[in-house]
């Protein structure tokens, strides 16, 4: 009788359970009504089953978002785990949609589900991609804008994983500053 090794039938568990959300901009509805939970997963295999099944970000209509957050954290500033948090923000030029957008987003997802930031991965709440005509954005959200060690470690690893050249500066902004900004840009807490 053949004995199957466990590797052939046991899925690979992730450290966290994750929830993928989709936002579609419909101006007749409230912001919250436009936000839908797609699915949750907690294994490597189920992550790919979901990823392979949905549209690439570059195919989404302008105004749409994907968000991947740890189970129990809603992808909004108001959630208790986000209220004092902030984000490492990657802004992309229009030309980068073709060259970099899908690659950057997949790399972001792999950083999250693979726990790429070592012990500081605990500070990660999730990640968001905004598809916008004026320029797409990708961000990793963390839970506390005062956790300098965690934020700088996450930023360094993330920038390296994306292959962003050292001379390009990326910024970390608190959600509180983003929510209350008066102009078009938010001041960086860290770079």
């Amino acid at each position: 009788q053949k004995v199957m090794s466990p590797e052939t039938y046991i899925k690979h568990p992730l450290q966290n359970k994750w929830a993928l959300w989709f936002f579609k901009n419909d101006k007749s509805k409230t912001w919250q009504a436009n936000l839908r939970l797609i699915s949750k997963f907690d294994t490597v295999e189920d992550f790919w089953a979901l990823y392979n099944h949905i549209q690439l970000s570059s195919n989404l209509m302008s105004g749409c978002d994907y968000s991947l957050f740890k189970d129990g954290i809603e992808p909004m500033w108001e959630d208790g785990r986000n209220r004092r948090g902030g984000r490492w923000l990657i802004t992309l030029s229009k030309q980068q949609r073709r060259a970099d957008l899908d690659r950057f987003w997949l790399e972001t997802l792999l950083c999250l589900v693979g726990e790429a930031f070592d012990d500081h991965s605990d500070d990660v709440c999730g990640a968001v991609i905004n598809v916008r005509a004026k320029g797409d954005k990708i961000a990793i959200w963390t839970t506390d804008y005062e956790n300098k060690d965690a934020i700088t470690h996450i930023g360094r690893v993330y920038k390296e994983r994306l292959g962003v050249p050292p001379k390009v500066i990326i910024g970390y902004q608190s959600h509180a500053d983003t929510a209350t900004k008066s102009g078009s840009s938010t001041k960086n807490k860290f770079v």
């Binding site: 899925k11 992730l14 392979n52």
Partner: peptide
């Protein structure tokens, strides 16, 4: 211990069926 997976390991599973 934290369950960490590097990118090559994760990418190796992209086209393995998860229909179990």
């Amino acid at each position: 211990k934290k369950k960490q997976y590097d990118r090559e390991f994760l990418l190796g599973f992209q086209f393995i069926s998860a229909s179990m």
